[in-house]
């Protein structure tokens, strides 16, 4: 299978005045298209930092990052915006839905920035929302939904533009086990449909579903081994 993600010696430093925090300390990582990967590690180990870089929300201080064969680590901000829009779906622990928009509009958002017509947006968003079981809530505001439902909206938004990779940073962290299980079901299904899925999690049950677990410690990958 083709490598969809390949990083080489990724380093990320945060400058806090005099102090320098090294959040990533030479990460080498390859992920193939269609993989389901779980990233685990203690708090503060650099999981989110790595996800942000993989998700093109942030750039590394040094090192290389190839996404789908394209070197993105040195790209300009607006080019990264276009990559985020077309190749990446990101699911956050805290959902990050727009409270003023109904869930249909929330899911249409990436399509708007992709320049799709109003009609196409609506069609695709409805279709995706149906696939996560929210067809009867299209006009509801996020505040009118449960946590699990909100996270399903966020997943719908992440996959509506058909991204190359789906990233999720502790997607079940704010959910009870029932809702978390539902969300995990969706990720498993998306993976089985051929999507590349990368999930940061503290939950062993979640990690067990993944094809591979990557452990991070102090900004370094400890070892990468296949499970199951």
């Amino acid at each position: 299978m083709a490598e969809i993600i390949a990083t080489k010696n990724l380093i990320k430093d945060y400058n806090l005045g005099k102090v320098k925090v090294r959040a990533l300390n030479g990460v080498d990582l390859t992920i193939e298209a269609g993989e389901f990967v779980a990233i685990m590690g203690p708090s503060g180990s650099g999981k989110s930092t790595l996800m942000h870089i993989i998700g093109c929300l942030d750039s590394p201080t040094s090192g290389e990052y190839h996404l789908d064969g394209v070197l993105v680590s040195q790209m300009a901000k607006d080019d990264l915006a276009s990559i985020r829009n077309s190749k990446i779906g990101f699911v956050f622990q805290s959902f990050n839905l727009l409270p003023h928009l109904n869930i249909l509009k929330n899911v249409e958002l990436p399509l708007m920035y992709a320049g799709e017509s109003l009609r196409e947006r609506s069609r695709k968003a409805r279709e995706i929302l149906a696939s996560v079981g929210l067809s009867d809530r299209l006009r509801h505001k996020p505040s009118e939904l449960s946590g699990g439902q909100r996270q399903r909206v966020a997943i719908a938004r992440a996959i509506v533009n058909n991204p190359a990779i789906l990233l999720a940073d502790e997607p079940t962290g704010n959910l009870d086990s029932q809702a978390g299980g539902d969300i995990l079901e969706i990720f498993t299904r998306l993976h089985s449909q051929g999507n590349t899925v990368i999930i940061v999690t503290h939950d062993k049950a979640v990690a067990q579903r993944a094809g591979r677990i990557i452990r991070i410690m102090d900004g370094r990958i400890e070892d990468g081994h296949l499970t199951g």
Partner: peptide, 14 residues
Amino acid sequence: REIGVRIAVGARRR
């Protein structure tokens, strides 16, 4: 936060 979300899903600076 809203701006952050928009940027995260692909809005450019412009």
